[in-house]
Amino acid sequence: MKVAITSTGNTLKSTIDQRFGRCAYFVIYDTETKSIEFIPNPNKDAEEGAGPASVQLVAAKNVNKIISGEFGMKIKSLLDSLKIQMIILKEKEKTITDIINLLDHEK
């Protein structure tokens, strides 16, 4: 299962980005193969429509869950129709490693 995490940088030590549409990087983590992929977000400085564009970007990677600090207004209906689960994590200081460890804890 693939999980997308919004990240402020492209290292494992960077923290979770509190915004979904305009985050700096997306981390695509595969819980089965443990592979980690960093994708820079092209919509970082978009004036409008960053959320839906980011949804397309992430959905093209076949993710099942998205972890972010907050999701915008237009996102919920899109993600519900794509059956992607949203996870809101309000703790700003959590790093990508922390979140991946949490996800691995599941099994």
């Binding site: 992607i84 996870i87 703790e91 599941e106």
Partner: peptide
Amino acid sequence: KCNCFFNNPEKDKEIKACPLCG
């Protein structure tokens, strides 16, 4: 436990554990 919020996009499946920390 991990202080997160999440939704259940698939209605027919019941969520029993937190998707993040389990």
